[in-house]
Simulated assay, not measured.
Amino acid sequence: MLNTMVLGGLDAKRCEAAAFGGSVYAELSPATEKTTLSKQSVASAIATATRYIENGQASCDLLRDFCQRALADNRKLGVYVPARFVNSMRIIGIPFNGVRFFDDDPSLVGTFYPGIPIAIESRSSLIEDPVDTLIIMSRTFGGALKKVLLDVLPVGIEIMLISDLADIDPQSAAND
């Protein structure tokens, strides 16, 4: 990322990761002189980008496999915080049948994401009519949400955090 800022004619006064959410905070100003990047710096950036692509593909593969298993034999898959799932759903080719969306935002209940015929439901709807497997798509609050849901959902419902699926080291997953 710093390479991008340098090539854009900016000087990073401060650059740090946010405490949560994956954001990066940077204080930038116009560079006073033109900066060039070393071959080593460019090679390092390319290697980082390549790892990012490979890890993303591996995460998509793991999510696809998990969703396919969860939907096998007419089972129902629920997705909590579905806004973070809809793009993945299209990328990995998960069918609409058997999938339900849940969110705690009351303004979303009964609405749809463009091109996806799955109405968003409330937490109470999930409790009244549970699914077989639930994926929670929040890295920040997923653990706390899972703990609350375990107390109110019937025993036997599989609850998976996205971090349990997508944060797996692709090398170790390939060796399992």
Rank of each mutant, 00 (worst) to 15 (best):
I159T: 04
N74R: 11
I136N: 01
I118S: 05
E54C: 09
P130A: 10
D151Y: 03
K76M: 12
S107L: 11
F85A: 14
R100S: 04
G110Y: 12
L145M: 12
D73Y: 03
L62P: 00
D103V: 12
T133R: 01
I116Y: 00
I127H: 07
A72S: 13
G98N: 04
V86I: 15
P130K: 06
D151V: 08
L108N: 01
I127Q: 04
N55G: 07
K76Q: 14
P154D: 14
R139G: 10
V99C: 11
T50R: 13
D151A: 15
S138M: 06
V109F: 11
Y52M: 05
R84W: 07
K147F: 06
A49H: 09
I135L: 15
D129F: 14
T140K: 09
G56H: 10
V99S: 10
F101K: 10
S125F: 06
I94F: 07
S59L: 04
R75Q: 11
D129G: 05
E54M: 10
R64H: 10
R123K: 15
S124F: 08
R139E: 11
E128S: 14
I157L: 10
I91F: 05
A49D: 07
K76N: 09
P82I: 14
D105R: 11
I118C: 00
D65Q: 09
R51D: 14
M137Q: 13
D65I: 06
S138T: 12
I118E: 06
L134K: 01
D129H: 11
I53H: 15
V109I: 05
F66M: 02
S59T: 09
D73F: 03
T50D: 07
G110P: 00
D105E: 13
G56N: 11
I136S: 03
A144K: 04
G156D: 13
I116C: 05
R84A: 13
P130N: 07
I94G: 01
P130H: 08
L63T: 02
G156M: 12
G142E: 02
I159C: 04
V131D: 09
A58V: 06
I53Q: 15
V109A: 15
A119S: 09
V131E: 09
M160H: 08
V148P: 02
L150A: 09
R51P: 01
N74T: 08
I120V: 15
D151I: 05
F96I: 05
I118A: 05
N87A: 10
